[in-house]
Design a protein around this nucleic acid. Sequence first.
DNA 1: ATAAACTTTCAAAAATTCTTGGAAGTTTAT
DNA 2: ATAAACTTCCAAGAATTTTTGAAAGTTTAT
Lengths: 168, 168
Amino acid sequence: MKTEEIRQQFVQAWGVLGTSWGISRSMAQVHALLLLNKGEMSTEEVMEELKLSRGNVNMVLRDLIGWNLIYKQTKPGDRKEYFIAEHDIWQIAVRVVTERKKREIMPAKQTVKMLMNNTSDAKDADQLHVKHMLSELNSFIEQMDTLSELLLKAEKNALLKNVLKLMS
Amino acid sequence: MKTEEIRQQFVQAWGVLGTSWGISRSMAQVHALLLLNKGEMSTEEVMEELKLSRGNVNMVLRDLIGWNLIYKQTKPGDRKEYFIAEHDIWQIAVRVVTERKKREIMPAKQTVKMLMNNTSDAKDADQLHVKHMLSELNSFIEQMDTLSELLLKAEKNALLKNVLKLMS
DNA sequence: ATAAACTTTCAAAAATTCTTGGAAGTTTAT
DNA sequence: ATAAACTTCCAAGAATTTTTGAAAGTTTAT
């Protein structure tokens, strides 16, 4: 199989996976392309390789920078900006988790907490059930939050070791 | 705050969260509604409560059954079908993880494995880098797979206990 | 066999999300 | 100050996903 084919299939697969995780297809594709590229690429090169418009690539690159998944680079004597991916998969995971937590988990957590406060005076069976579900949900979110903190703080190898220990 | 308001806000919040996790808004809303309902509901009641069409609600209820998040129930002497949610948050999480793993992780895993096989004869620097990234990704997926197995097998309390122990 | 009660299907419409490309904005060099 | 080289913005268009609702399909009772 040629490198080019591999690259295409990988970009494609990453794109599919991305869309089911709330990441736009082109963001995932650009990310995949940069991941498989050891060095840096310019906006133009990305446009060319994936046949996307300048505006789109620009937007997507900014997003990826916002997620800390790629870095800007400059070359001396060249005014153009170049981009290079974070290649450490563990770091990638940490950043994705951090970002999603910030964007989705925290707001949900807040909403649940707020609703709980407004249910403290529950009386009838229905209200009690709602209260119960909110409290269950809240403690579940806390647990997941704790777990994600653990993941974020754990060293790459320490985590694996601990997981394996737990499974014994 | 009235129960009705709480319900609405919760349904709304759950809907938003759902869409960013690849679950359709109405699926998430119907799920939220059933979660807050201690008892069972008919298609009609769901339609009424959320102002959704019969077809949509029917489809969504079947999906939720497919995810094992709700159960069908029948009442003696009544031909209609009723639906009741799984109310144990831990079980809900287990089922969501199981389902997403089946639908998304496994195919990705397979693709990466396949691409790895086709890169075994890498020669130049580019090819070697692609090979390296695929292998890193593969081992990361394995680790996450292991972790998800752990989550799925762990008892509710045992998990929390272990997590806390790890964090000390 | 027929009707009534309920469920499922599916093609069209609506809503949402993503992409484009030209125009406006910046920065740097001269 | 001007031009050249890039980057960013954004409104319109394209693509995708979700929802609708009427029609077809099932099941049960009589």
